[in-house]
Write a protein that binds this DNA or RNA. Structure first.
Length: 601
RNA sequence: UGCCCGAUGGUGUAACGGUAGCACAGCAGACUCUGGAUCUGUUUGUCAUGGUUCAAAUCCAUGUCGGGCAGCCA
């Protein structure tokens, strides 16, 4: 089970965008009393950060207006959908909304469905709370199959739908093309009775897959392709993850979605830009069925494009199936489960969504915006620890072997309530290879021969001697510790330019550290015709053995830390064990020195 | 060459006929027992051309560029 996030203590600025303005107008004008939105993923893959944007929008509007947002599985295609995806989607939505919008997460009692057309065509199903202890589950479009089927029959009775025997290929030909009108199907003028009869034969399994379809009767010469007698029901002799073998005909997205919205009493049906051309059909279905108003309305916004990654479900599935990554929750993936495993807090996803805004402009968001949201949240909340990733041994010659000096370290300078901890300090320590240079460049102010540096929370040391092996590699640095410069000591105020992190060699814990980098080498790997896999970053994962301070022995899977001066790391929830810690690098710290040193090579 | 949508610094967004602002990135500096964080300063922008108006990023027209639409996918 996914661990949920604590409440975010920071007050949130109420965001504003063109959709929220419409919602506010609808409330102000009295057109809507209570806002009901929905988040309607198809359970055919895992959710990604683009979905997080949509979740933040839909649940955010519900939060801000005192409404509710239904989580609904848009499951009308049995051949692509699986329960594994249903479960992961629920877990991901709970995680993103936890500590923030849990109170407006719309679920329903397990097994509850609309009571079908027995009540006429005007009925609605609403979200319930778990107050009586009944287990809850998401809404499912497939729970409305009876109702949707009744609506289809009604459409036939109104003379607005017909059963068509054209083959898939013929249907395509008859549809015409964007700049050429289509032509009427020869089956377009079947009588109501014949259509009703054929449709019931379809439902009863009298026909093979694709033998015929139910189509809306609209206008084959419409400039909008989706109004050219769109298919609204097709035959699929396939087992459905939620309805089993009860059905062999399934409604198409366009027919099921608007009606699902209607059945749930959705007020604002928010989707991405590619559905813009479907909106006339959405409206046509609801108004042709003469359903009581107010009807739900569809609004569209631009989906998220983020640099150096891919977002399409197809490509993500490909990366998983071809084992280019380790699974849907690989920390390099932009999936919500990957992002979570990597150590990104849910609050970062929310502030990110707020920063990028909601518009109809199809742009490419710079990765740095996301990275900033991650760093700023982690800076506030992550406990500081010390860890050395690429060690070099330092001997403090004036400290006797076997002596252990304990020093106090601040857990989080950004959080006064986080307290302190004790760290062992002794004769042999490990420091970062980068923090010692025999021939340092200008402006380098860490350890050098004959130079001084402060060991964070311990004392200032002076480098006396460098020991190398036969290949000239530095294997040991011998230093003298100024023990009076320890915190609280006589020389505590002594200033040196550099401060570095360290661990006591004898006490440090060995840990596996997984260093993640962007999955692709170019900002838009799926741009152009080529295979996006050619841009895979061969260095997207480096696994090393690092050394961390002993207090980490008590840490738990999922805990997030800042290794001082290095970056943010989370204990892997899948592979870490108490006797062999595994850390995922969430993100590195900003490195001002890297920038400085790159300037004058 | 049909229909729909869009265009504001490097990137993302605000300004709803009246001083083009914010965030990220960048640059410069201050501070620092994290070259982190923080703080200060700062470079860069209304797609083009006409029109309406005292006044246009905003309204209108035309053009340019970008995106979407021809699944019995969603």
């Amino acid at each position: 089970m996914t661990e949920l996030e604590p409440n975010s203590p920071l007050p949130q600025v109420v965001p504003s965008d063109f959709i929220r303005e419409i919602v506010q107008q609808d409330i102000a004008s009295g057109r809507r009393q209570r806002i009901v939105t929905r988040f309607p993923p198809e359970p055919n893959g895992y959710l990604h950060i683009g979905h997080a944007k949509s979740i933040c929008l839909n649940f955010g509007i519900a939060m801000e207006t005192g409404g509710v947002c239904h989580l609904r599985m848009d499951d009308t295609n049995p051949t692509k959908e699986e329960v594994e995806y249903v479960d992961s989607i629920l877990a991901d939505v709970r995680w993103v909304t936890s500590g923030w919008a849990d109170s407006v997460l719309g679920l329903k009692r397990v097994g509850e469905t609309p009571t079908s057309a027995a009540h006429g065509l005007d009925f609605q199903i609403a979200r319930t709370t778990a107050s009586d202890g009944t287990p809850l589950e998401p809404f499912f479009a497939s729970d409305y199959f009876d109702a949707i089927h009744a609506f289809a029959q009604q459409l036939i009775r109104l003379g607005k739908a017909y059963v068509c025997d054209l083959t898939p290929e013929q249907t395509e030909q008859y549809r015409g093309s964007p700049d050429r009108p289509g032509q009427n199907s020869p089956y377009r003028n079947r009588s109501v009775d014949e259509n009703l009869d054929l449709f019931s034969q379809m439902r009863d399994g009298k026909f093979r897959d694709s033998a015929c379809t139910l189509r809306a009767k609209i206008d084959m010469s419409s400039p909008n392709i989706w109004m050219r007698d769109p298919v609204i029901y097709r035959i699929r002799h396939a087992e459905h993850h939620h309805t089993g073998n009860r059905w062999c005909i399934y409604p198409m997205y366009d027919f099921a979605h608007c009606l699902s919205d209607y059945i749930e009493g959705i007020t604002h049906s928010i989707c991405t830009l590619e559905f813009e051309v479907h909106r006339p059909l959405y409206d046509w279905i609801l108004s042709t069925l003469q359903l009581p108003r107010p009807l739900p309305h569809q609004y569209e916004f631009a989906r998220l494009n983020l640099g150096y990654t891919v977002m399409s479900k197809r490509k993500l599935l490909q990366l998983v199936q071809e084992k280019i990554v380790t699974g849907w929750d690989d920390p390099r993936l932009p999936t919500i489960s990957g992002i979570r495993r990597r150590g990104v807090p849910a609050a970062s996803l929310r502030t990110f969504a707020q920063e990028i805004g909601v518009t109809k402009y199809n742009g490419l968001t710079d990765l740095s915006v996301f990275e900033f949201a991650v760093r700023s949240e982690l800076n506030r909340t992550a406990a500081r620890r010390m860890g050395v990733l690429h060690p070099v041994r330092v001997i403090l010659t004036n400290i006797p072997a076997g002596e252990v000096l304990w020093v106090d370290a601040i857990n989080n300078p950004e959080d006064p309530n986080s307290g302190t901890r004790r760290i062992p300090f002794s004769r042999e320590i490990l420091i970062e290879q980068e923090d010692f240079q025999e021939n340092p460049p200008p402006k380098y102010f860490r350890l050098r021969p004959g130079g001084d540096v402060r060991l964070k929370y311990a004392c200032i040391i002076h480098c006396d001697e460098v020991v190398k092996n036969t290949t000239g590699q530095v294997v040991e640095v011998r230093c003298t510790a100024d023990l009076e410069s320890r915190s609280g000591g006589a020389n505590a105020g002594r200033k040196v330019k550099g401060t570095i992190h360290w661990v006591s060699a004898e006490h440090a814990l060995s840990a596996e550290v997984r260093l993640y980098d962007r999955l692709f080498t170019v900002a838009e790997p799926d741009r152009g015709d080529g295979d996006f896999r050619q841009y895979l970053n061969p260095d997207s994962l480096k696994i090393i053995e690092g050394w961390v301070e002993p207090s980490l022995r008590e840490a738990h899977p999922g805990d997030r830390f800042q290794f001082e001066r290095v970056g943010y790391f989370a204990i892997d929830v899948r592979d870490s064990r108490s006797d062999k810690l595994v850390f995922n690098r969430t993100i590195s710290l900003k490195d001002g020195w890297a920038k400085e040193s790159a300037r004058s090579p």
